[in-house]
Nucleic acid binder design. Structure first.
Lengths: 358, 358
DNA sequence: GTTAGCACTCTCACGGTGAGAGTGCTAACT
DNA sequence: AGTTAGCACTCTCACCGTGAGAGTGCTAAC
């Protein structure tokens, strides 16, 4: 009654006990009993005393029991509290760092993203998720047209961060190779450094304004660019490590597994969720009720944006059962965000140190 | 005793009974009893008679019971017999055909493959699998080099069937754009129509032979082609619809689900399996013990090669629990093989009839 | 060769039971 | 007032036996 459910009025002892419970639960996946906390012996208290505190903690909303006379399990609130003020981050082990840096070193931008999601899932033992930049928002570095057959032209777009996209388009008339080269030169030189969406808009405006006056090459350029830079699809998202989760005790029944797989298959929803973490630039953690998807699966999301320079390109993170080793996973995600940003920066700006292609 | 276990000495009646059992089991996923076959009433026999026949069929190896006093379940041998000589193929419904043709109509070759695996899984309610052509075996249509930054060059390879591959390579010295254009022209004109692997080998030989004499452009061409056409990775494989299988009653326990997902994640093994079906050109069916993978999961594979003209490009098929509607699935796979081959043929040779890009 | 009848076997769902784990409460202790 | 021992209570879970139901195999009669 007199007690307020604020985190502030937890006594240091309460916090210690809560912490013990969380650590123990994260490790064992089983409800924690008063007795086991007492026997841990970090603070020498009897099980009965612990019980009293646990009853309080449950009342404040930090614990819950699956049923009477089971141990207790931390709630999302408990995890939040733990992350904010009780956890001491464990640095990413040197060998993991080396492994990460090695994995993100080689290949083009797409391969690097793939490697990132893979490494993420491998080291965290959770599902690794990486949102690739939306094509429309990428900054143009070069564009090129390759004649294929008749009126068919392959349009290749290279973005500043090193992403390559290609697309076959069909022109109204056959365009000779030299003309295509001139057009790609023109587009590359004039629009390099702008976002694809911006370029497309400008071209469309040019077309509308000066309809009649544009010369032949410009007209062709506009036609090609309109099709070739028409990249309205949302950002892609790479998911890795879903199979690994099947080993987890919390995924005992098929129905949950199925819901999980369906959730991971819904890329659009994943992107929406991940992009909520774009603001700011630190690691963000969503637990349980914090989002629709995490509450549905009783999962947590640890995510961080990445990008080159001051431009945010996307988000990466890990998803898994709320019971996870935040102390280990949060620094991991943080480090991967930084490493990926750095890797993309280098792969694009082009001072490759050592090129290790054999 | 006197009886031989040959398919040949099954009486017509035995075959009818076996067929009823298979059809019933495929539908219900439950062991079928003598009584239920009798009640079907196609041949008016009592349950006891059916029982005698079933005991025989079990002895020949066409049936087995999960335990005494359960009904009986068809074995792989039974399915094989069914497919070879008892089944009457059901034609692919017109609306499915239209849907398939529509789905494979637009997009570049990679998108078409993706659509194929998706449609396959959707219409069969099984896992759709498509093996993409190994890059090294594809036939060159055009090659192009795009300068990106400094010594970095994007190499784009277009294959005759319409596949596009790109790869960032790093040259020893910076090469001006015009030079790159000349080189790609040279390579495209001289090597169009040959497989990438063949081209690479020829270039390497040229290099070895005339080391000193080759002119600058040729030297550069060789250097670029060596890196850019270095496509030693095996063929890729697209898998779609794994989630759908979770609904199946036979995948009740997590362990099986896990083994299944692990099997599908092992692309190399999948490719090896699928490629066993390349020989000949009809639909091939592997059931249970026919291959390591299908026996491990108790799955069946229905697969057919596809390609343009007389060149086989890859394989496609469906994978699922042995209990499947072969009557429906086999013609489906057959039709998809044909449609995909046709779609790739059109998308490359370039008489698109109507281009329906909006 | 076919069938009815019957005993036999095996699974599965159900309910009861008892051990074990854990709690909540009360009363005594410091 | 905080802490603790003790104890009754509750809930789960594994185990067991039981009985219904399903299906078979065999035998004897048609």
């Amino acid at each position: 009654m007199a007690e307020v459910k604020d985190a502030a009025n937890l006594t240091p002892r309460d916090r210690e006990i809560l912490k013990d419970i969380i650590l123990s639960y994260v490790l064992s996946a089983e409800p924690v009993s008063s007795r086991s906390v007492s026997k841990l012996g970090r603070l020498s208290l009897s099980a009965a005393t612990i019980r009293n505190v646990m009853a309080d903690l449950e009342e404040w909303g930090y614990l819950m029991q699956p049923h009477t006379s089971a141990g207790r399990v931390p709630t999302a609130a408990a995890y939040h509290l733990f992350i904010e003020s009780m956890m001491q981050v464990r640095k990413v082990p040197a060998r993991d760092r080396r492994y990460i840096e090695e994995s993100l070193k080689s290949g083009d931008a797409d391969q690097i993203l793939g490697a990132a999601s893979h490494v993420l899932s491998e080291l965290s033992q959770q599902v690794g998720v990486v949102v690739a930049p939306a094509v429309g928002e990428t900054v143009l570095k070069a564009v090129d047209f390759v004649p294929i057959y008749g009126r068919r032209v392959l349009c290749v777009v290279v973005s500043a961060a090193g992403f390559v996209d290609n697309k076959v388009i069909e022109t109204e008339e056959e365009i000779p190779r030299e003309e295509l080269v001139r057009i790609s030169n023109y587009l590359t030189e004039n629009f390099c450094g702008q976002t694809l969406r911006g370029i497309r808009d400008r071209l469309l405006k040019m077309m509308a304004e000066e309809r009649a006056q544009v010369n032949r090459m410009l007209a062709l350029a506009i036609e090609l660019a309109r099709e070739g830079l028409n990249v309205d699809d949302g950002p892609d998202v790479l998911v890795d490590g879903t199979t690994g989760l099947l080993a987890r005790p919390e995924l005992g029944d098929i129905q949950r597994v199925r819901r999980m797989f369906e959730a991971f298959a819904d890329k659009a929803r994943l992107v929406k969720l991940l992009n909520r973490c774009i603001q700011g630039q630190g690691v963000r953690v969503l637990i349980g009720d914090d989002s629709e998807l995490t509450s549905e699966l009783d999962f947590s999301l640890v995510a961080v944006p990445y990008g080159v320079g001051d431009q945010t390109l996307g988000t990466l993170g890990i998803l898994g059962p709320s019971r996870m080793e935040y102390e280990r996973v949060i620094p991991l995600v943080h480090f991967l965000g930084e490493t990926l940003s750095r890797a993309l920066g280098e792969s694009s700006s082009g001072h490759p140190e050592k090129s290790e292609k054999k």
